[in-house]
Amino acid sequence: MTGQPYTLYGLKLSYFTGKLEAYLRAKGIAFKFVEMNLADFQRCARETGVAQMPQLLTPQGAWLTDTTAIIAHFEDQAVEPRFRPSTASGAFLSRLLEDAFDEWLWRPALYYRWAFREDAQLMGRQIARTLLRDLPAPLWLRSFWITKRQQVEYLRGDGVTQENSPAIERHYLTVLDLLEPIFAARPYLFGDRPCEADFGLFGPMFRHFSHDPTPAAILRERAPHVLRWTANLWATTPDNLASATPVANAPADLDPLLRCIGADYLPYLKANLEAVANQAPRVRFESFGGQFEIPTSPYRAACWLDLRRQFAALSKEEQSAISARLGFEIKLDGKALDPTLLALTIRRRVSNRHWQ
């Protein structure tokens, strides 16, 4: 793990780049960071067929994409320090939480970055100065263009309206309130060392909620222990974890968070899978009292199928206990293996619009 370095291509303000950086640091995997410009972004897309960030080049010249898949790749090797819980039910809940933090928190993270003038101007200029630095145009023009592009893509394109924006803010505040007592009680979500779920949560918390002016001010005042967890995870190394007890099960005080995900995020995943299966272009759903309509996501459908297949591998007792904790019944019907549906989702990484 500490031999020839990997090369990590990304941006220092990127949601998923920060997630992968923290994981590689905590795992003790040597890497060198390349801050992408447009030429790098296009080169990586040619190499992998995926226009997204981050992308990881191995010392052997192979490419790895999609942070969830990259983390799973390393955790499958069972090299210490291990971040996958040792029990089957704990591993499933860690993976479920990792997915939820990646995708469920995506909308509030992007909303706070691009819906507020101070945040949008600051981050638009940062992207113009970094990713667009090789574009032959003045900085002000690059900043203006990328800010407008992001607002169209991640606000209007993600179903954000004046009517449902209060629901997005309730989403963020609710999650902070659910997390604060957890991190007041222990250093990481499951115990004395991080699990995959911690790195999923780190993506939105580090590069968005703790850095962008508007959500960062809320975080400092409302959830100081969450802020402390964010800094601690960024500082985590294998040496910090040498005496930490490996994680096994999801503690009982995670249940309010699990029930919230079961009530809000999992019904959306179910609706999105149905829409993808029916080849519908858009999906409608309710979240935190707001009404949303967004494009269907083959990527999220594939992730939900993966989670259902992992759930199917659990014992009946484990399935029943997890469903009770979520307050949501994960139904295992034939769609999990339907070849037509699998064909629609097989290109999930190509369909992933999360180029951040």
Results as ranks from 00 to 15, higher is better:
W140P: 05
L269F: 00
F83M: 12
Y112W: 04
L93S: 10
L105Y: 00
L178I: 06
Q162R: 14
L110A: 13
W304H: 13
Y9N: 04
L56T: 03
S165T: 12
N164D: 14
I294P: 01
A301G: 07
E21F: 00
P166Y: 14
Q4T: 11
L233K: 00
R170Y: 12
W229C: 01
F83E: 12
P281W: 07
G10D: 00
Y172C: 02
E221T: 13
A26S: 12
E196L: 15
A321H: 14
P298V: 03
F285K: 00
R82D: 09
I182G: 01
F31N: 08
L96N: 04
R25C: 04
A302P: 04
N164L: 10
A223Q: 03
V34N: 03
P204E: 05
R170V: 11
P166A: 15
I218W: 01
G28L: 03
I330G: 06
N249E: 15
Y188V: 07
I294Y: 01
F33E: 06
Y188E: 07
R259P: 03
L13Y: 07
H225G: 01
A313W: 06
P181A: 08
A51I: 01
R220G: 11
L176D: 00
D99G: 09
P298D: 03
N352C: 12
L341W: 03
Y111H: 14
Q279Y: 08
F116G: 05
E98P: 12
I70F: 10
A242D: 07
L141S: 14
R284D: 12
P138W: 01
R107C: 08
A216D: 14
Q279W: 10
L233W: 01
P138H: 08
S320T: 15
L24I: 09
V350F: 13
Q310S: 09
F199E: 07
A39V: 00
R300G: 02
C44T: 13
L38F: 06
N278R: 15
Q162V: 11
R284F: 10
A321P: 02
E153L: 11
P213W: 04
N352M: 10
L305W: 05
A313D: 12
L233V: 03
R149M: 13
W104M: 07
P136D: 05
L131E: 00
I29K: 08
R207F: 14
S165P: 10
F328K: 04
W355P: 02
L155D: 03
K19Q: 13
T296G: 06
D40L: 05
F33Y: 13
Q55M: 10
A242H: 12
G200I: 08
